[in-house]
């Protein structure tokens, strides 16, 4: 009996010991730079057409986007976001207040529904400086990226910050439908951007963490450079060329991606794609996550879309039934 008590106490002590180790101040990290050979400045055309949205193979879920658009082939990287911050700061489009990069948002409708938050016009958090997990730092003049993280997807960026980036360049965040079409294509009905099977060689997610740590030389879970899963071998780790039918990288795993949609009576914004912290179920095309637009996380990033023709984006449902967007 005494032994059981000792074991229990030992386990409890272990747990407590694990809980208290948390440094006050964030120390920026450096890691080995890995060139994936994928250019994050590339865009791809998604032509107008039908696609299956969501989880269920049913005509009710057949959707159509009647316009062409272009989407980034990869998530926005730290280097791209730092470049934007420097440009936007110089142009007076953002400001720095209490170690936070902030930008203007015109506000949105507030109905007072349960759990809804009031978002009036004003300056909102884009990116927290010096926060644990950030990869971009500011020396008072310039934003720079931690060594080795230049081509990793930017994280710790809020929905406002993601939107701000896209708008600055005349682009926008993808809608959920645009994101799903870009991830799934029109040819078939698939669970992941590359098909229906997933292994640790397809994406950066919970199961691939162990191998990725070895490649990156770190002892914790982490993002991978954009386009990492492109069929290349990194050390002993062979990746699969896990692109979507349109050739997009990282549409499953690595980081969650903010999407544009504002749902009625909800302040939360949605994210798609799953991340390095998640199980495979969250990497399925229809899976989602959501959070308040002014919050930031170590596993959330984004990519942008841009319009090809100046037509009002409109979603149609060819089956003739109403589809909630």
């Amino acid at each position: 009996m005494r032994r059981i008590l000792i074991i229990t106490l030992a386990i409890a002590s272990l747990m407590l010991w694990g809980c208290v180790r948390q440094p006050e101040k964030w120390t920026h990290e450096e890691i080995k730079y890995i060139d994936t050979g994928v250019d994050p400045n590339t865009w791809v055309l998604i032509p107008a057409g039908e696609f299956f949205g969501g989880q269920f193979r049913n005509l009710r879920h057949l959707r159509k986007l009647n316009y062409d658009y272009e989407i980034m082939v990869t998530d926005v990287t730290n280097a791209q976001y730092a470049k934007y911050l420097n440009e936007a700061l110089a142009a007076g489009k953002i400001k720095i207040e209490n170690h936070q990069v902030k930008g203007f948002y015109p506000g949105e409708e507030y109905t007072g529904f349960r759990h809804e938050r009031k978002i009036g016009p004003g300056y909102y958090l884009y990116y927290p400086l010096g926060e644990h997990g950030t990869r971009i730092k500011f020396d008072g003049k310039t934003f720079t990226v931690d060594k080795g993280f230049e081509n990793h997807p930017v994280t710790m960026v809020t929905w406002f910050g993601a939107r701000g980036y896209c708008l600055y360049y005349g682009w926008r965040l993808p809608t959920e439908a645009e994101w799903e079409k870009a991830a799934r294509g029109t040819e078939d009905f698939r669970a992941y951007p590359w098909g229906n099977e997933i292994t640790p060689h397809h994406a950066n997610y919970d199961l691939s963490n162990k191998e990725i740590r070895k490649v990156l030389g770190v002892n914790h879970g982490i993002t991978t450079p954009v386009g990492f899963f492109n069929g290349k071998k990194y050390g002993e780790f062979q990746t699969v060329n896990a692109v979507s039918p349109y050739g997009l990288y990282d549409m499953a795993g690595n980081v969650w991606q903010w999407v544009a949609d504002k749902h009625e009576r909800m302040t939360d914004r949605f994210m798609k794609g799953g991340s390095w912290m998640d199980y495979d179920i969250y990497l399925r095309i229809w899976a989602y996550n959501s959070a308040l637009p002014y919050n930031y996380y170590i596993n959330v990033g984004f990519r942008c879309v841009r319009d090809v023709k100046k037509e009002t984006p409109q979603e149609e449902n060819p089956s003739g039934e109403n589809v909630e967007k």
Partner: peptide
């Protein structure tokens, strides 16, 4: 625990 330090915990 902050997300960044959650792994050992």
């Amino acid at each position: 625990v902050k997300a960044y330090y959650q792994e050992p915990v």
